[in-house]
Simulated assay, not measured.
Amino acid sequence: MSKQTILLAVTGLTPQVVTETLYALYQQGDKLPAAIHILTTAEGYQRAKLTLINDGWLARFYTDHQLPQAEFSESHIHILQQADGDALHDIRSQSDNQAMADGITEWIRTFTADVDTALHVSIAGGRKTMGFYAGYALSLYGRHQDRLSHVLVAADYESHPQFYYPTPYSQVIYGNDPSRKPLDTQNAEVILADIPFVRLRHGLDQSLLNGKSSFSQSVANAQRALGPARLTIDPLRRLLIAHGKPVKLTPADLAFYLWLLQRQAEGLDAPQCPSDGAPDEAYAVEFLQQYRRITGEMGAADRTVAALQHGMSKPFFEQRKSRINKALQQTLSHAAQPYLIQAEGKRPRTRYSIKLESEQISVAPTSD
């Protein structure tokens, strides 16, 4: 089932980029959007309303080309806001710039939250910084079905106040320069240029995908997820701190993780999962050394110790591995990859290890 497409245009004082983009899509035989939204300034709102709605340029495009109209009204023209909630009239200061970036980011996060839609972002209008932030925000939040484009218009017609799209009939306008030469809108050339972009959505916290976030927060979060792997183990607090984020584990799971890292540090072979009905006594002894680092000797009579009295069993090994990986993935999403317990080699010789180098790992002291 195809997804409903939303066209989101970033416009300043040239709302005609909306109809130009629609025309280019139509000419290419692409699916036209079911709804159109505009992000702009206070003056841009007035221009879009007066030209596309009051003056009827958008309706005229659909009529001229005998196409069904997209959902669009004044409520679809969104004025970006300053930090205090007032309308943004222009981008003249650092605070205006930050407010614009945050506003664009939040709108794109919102539109990409709906799994049943495909978002097409056009960055042809507005100031260059508006287009930059729209493209960057789509890189942060965009999904595989989303699209980024820029519309290219022949120089004589570009930003012309009387040109909105190539008409299917002859219509004369006059050059927007001192020559005032006559131009026929029927002859205008309009091309849609798709812009490839890197999708970083997998690097964001679920909290940033689901809740309001500023541009700077989103960038910092993605950067953290893409940065080099760093792991700190805090046995006292029973935590792994991976990519700067705490991952809470049970004492048994944390001990299992420490046990794997300890074997790696000592240059021992990565362990294999014990066979059915053949618990491994050496594994159990090594594991319990790590377990007692966390629980102390008082934990020597608990259920975990009792389960290992005949050695480490296959179910014990597999449960620990599965629970740890699940906790890492839930907390870190795709950034969890370097911290996971990973299999290597074919059965029945599969071994399990954590693909981190010793210099990437630190262990907090267990006592003062």
Rank of each mutant, 00 (worst) to 15 (best):
M1F: 05
Q4V: 04
T11G: 01
V18K: 07
L22V: 07
Q27T: 04
A34Q: 04
A35C: 00
L39P: 08
E43N: 09
G44Q: 06
G44N: 03
Q46R: 15
Q46L: 09
K49I: 04
K49F: 12
I53L: 15
W57I: 02
R60Q: 15
Q66G: 08
Q69L: 05
A70I: 02
S75D: 15
I79V: 15
D84Y: 14
L88A: 04
R92Y: 03
S93R: 15
S93P: 15
G103R: 09
E106T: 10
L119M: 13
G125H: 06
R127C: 03
G131N: 00
A134V: 06
L140M: 13
Y141R: 02
Y141A: 09
G142H: 13
G142F: 14
Q145G: 09
R147G: 04
Y157I: 00
P161S: 13
Y169Q: 09
Q171A: 10
V172I: 14
I173F: 04
K181R: 14
E189S: 12
I191A: 10
I195Y: 01
F197R: 08
F197H: 10
L200C: 05
R201Y: 08
H202R: 13
S214F: 11
S218R: 02
A220Q: 10
A220Y: 07
A225Q: 12
A225R: 10
L226D: 06
D234R: 01
H243Y: 06
K245Y: 04
F256G: 08
R263P: 00
Q264L: 09
A265N: 09
L268G: 06
C273S: 14
Y283E: 13
Y291W: 14
G296C: 10
G296D: 11
G299C: 03
A300Q: 12
A301K: 07
A306C: 03
K314Q: 09
N325E: 06
Q330C: 07
A335Q: 13
A336C: 12
P338D: 08
Y339D: 04
I341S: 06
K346E: 15
R347V: 12
R349D: 14
T350H: 11
I354G: 00
K355H: 15
K355R: 15
S358P: 00
